Amino acid sequence: MKKNFTLIIGLVSLLSFGQIPAGYYDSATGTGYTLKTQLFNIISTGTIDPGYGALYTTYLTSDIDLYYENNGTVLDMYTENPTGPDLCEYTYGINQDDGTGGTSECQKYNREHIIPQSVFSSATPMHSDAHFVVPSDKYVNAQRGNLPFGVVNSVNWTSSNGSKRGSNLNSGYSAGYTANVFEPIDEFKGDIARMYFYFITRYQDQVAGWSYDMFNGTSNQVLTNTFLNILLTWHLNDPVSQREIDRNNAIYTYQNNRNPFIDNPDFVCDIWPTQCATLSSQEFILNNVAVFPNPSKNGEFSITTTAELKNIAIYNINGQLVQEIKNPNAIETSTYKVNNLATGFYMLQLQTENTSVTKKVIVN
């Protein structure tokens, strides 16, 4: 969930660390897979499994909408519209899946295993681990099914908030896989990536025995190169939000363990430094970007870059997406135009095939 940006990422870290029990990560002193094992020991010791049915109780504090509509309804990543009214609005205990409905969106909500439960044969405690089992529209959950998460190239289905299913884009940071995948909206890509990093750390003593297209059969890297690159990119492009921090704290009260990659996002690149460095080295593509005039006086500005842009996204200071231009057309050589912005401070995210960069923009 994209609620914070580069200029306030330090504040995010302070906020998240402020909620961690004293000494919780004292033994997390290593790097690479040594650090991953240390985190496994921390988050696997003294845990509680409240049971699958208790997830609905956990969701009453972990997954309520206090961030968008701010009305206490179910926060579902597959139908939540970050910039306007949701098509689907669920109230806990009223629209819960009872074995009926689910033939279209907005009928029922249920429990979505971000890592499909078929991967681990619905065994406990994975089956009821709220750190990666989330409330979801029943119909959208079924459309995702057991598909891996990836970058959709050719769309064959889209949810009400823009989450989509289709063949994976076999190029750029998602190269190496061509079958169908499911892609959430940008707002929740980092959330899902950090759920995966939690899962492959929390269950690293078992995961090598599980078969899944995203996994490589090891207990250290766990993910194939393709899916590791996808999740690392999502993690880096979509920083930890207050919603994730609050969710982590709420789940801790029920399970007595935490998602370390929300508490300290740097753990990700401390464990996979080579892959992070490779992804970061691609940022030179967007180093020579000019945004002008800045400040803008009429809600309009231009972007010049030699890179071919795939997406232009503008976020307000609260982290809400206010405008998005997919596959923008240059009005002249290497120049793109953005307009119709109200007075305010914005973060401009520019994406190419392989990487992204964020710029600050002011409209007076």
Results as ranks from 00 to 15, higher is better:
Thr37His: 01
Tyr177Asp: 08
Ser163Gln: 03
Thr253Gln: 10
Glu187Asn: 15
Asn161Val: 12
Ala313Met: 12
Ser122Lys: 04
Trp272Lys: 04
Thr224Asp: 09
Gly150Leu: 11
Pro82Val: 09
Arg144Phe: 02
Met214Tyr: 05
Tyr92Phe: 15
Gln255Arg: 03
Gln275Lys: 07
Phe284Ile: 12
Pro273Glu: 14
Tyr173Ile: 06
Ile200Gln: 02
Ile115Leu: 11
Ser334Phe: 14
Glu105His: 07
Cys88Leu: 13
Thr355Ser: 13
Trp272Gly: 03
Gln204Glu: 03
Phe188Thr: 10
Gly30Ser: 04
Ala313Thr: 13
Gly72Arg: 10
Thr83His: 15
Arg258Pro: 00
His113Gln: 07
Gln323His: 04
Lys297Asp: 15
Ile42Glu: 00
Thr226Asn: 14
Phe17Ala: 12
Ala179Asn: 15
Asn259Thr: 02
Gly51Asn: 01
Leu286His: 01
Asn329Met: 09
Asn225Lys: 09
Leu60Asn: 15
Glu308Asp: 14
Ile245Gly: 02
Asn257Ile: 00
Ser281Leu: 06
Thr352Cys: 10
Gln96Pro: 00
Ser334Glu: 14
Pro116Gly: 03
Ala179Asp: 13
Ile8Thr: 14
Asn141Thr: 01
Gly84His: 09
Glu112Ala: 08
Arg258Phe: 00
Thr233Tyr: 04
Ile312Tyr: 10
His235Met: 04
Asn95Thr: 06
Val357Tyr: 05
Ala175Lys: 10
Asp270Leu: 14
Gly93Asn: 10
Leu232Ile: 04
Tyr139Glu: 08
Asp65Asn: 14
Thr158Arg: 15
Ser302Met: 07
Trp210Met: 15
Ile8Trp: 06
Thr274Gly: 14
Lys164Ala: 10
Asp263Val: 01
Leu232Asn: 05
Leu231Asn: 13
Asp270Cys: 10
Ile251Cys: 06
Tyr52His: 03
Thr233Leu: 01
Val152Asn: 01
Leu11Asp: 11
Pro273Val: 08
Leu35Gln: 00
Val361Gln: 06
Glu324Val: 12
Tyr346Ile: 10
Ala130Gly: 05
Ala54Lys: 04
Ile48Ala: 07
Glu80Cys: 13
Ser27Gln: 14
Pro293Asn: 12
Phe17Cys: 04
Thr6Ser: 10
Asn156Trp: 04
Val240Met: 02
Ile303His: 01
Pro125Ser: 00
Val181Asn: 06
Ile271Tyr: 03
Pro295His: 13
Ala277Arg: 12
Lys2Asn: 14
Ile115Glu: 06
Ala123His: 02
Lys310Ile: 07
Val322Lys: 03
Thr333Leu: 12
Phe199Gln: 05
Asn141Arg: 01
Phe188His: 15
Glu353Thr: 11
Gln143Asp: 08
Pro21Phe: 07
Val357His: 05
Ile42Asp: 00
Asp270Asn: 13
Ala123Met: 05
Leu223Val: 01
Gly344Asp: 13
Ile114Leu: 13
Val152Gly: 03
Ile64Asp: 03
Ile251Phe: 02
Gln255Asn: 07
Gln206Thr: 05
Val289His: 09
Thr73Gln: 15
Leu55Gln: 09
Asn170Cys: 11
Tyr25His: 00
Asn180His: 10
Phe301Pro: 08
Asp98Leu: 09
Asn318Pro: 02
Ile251Asn: 05
Leu236Ser: 12
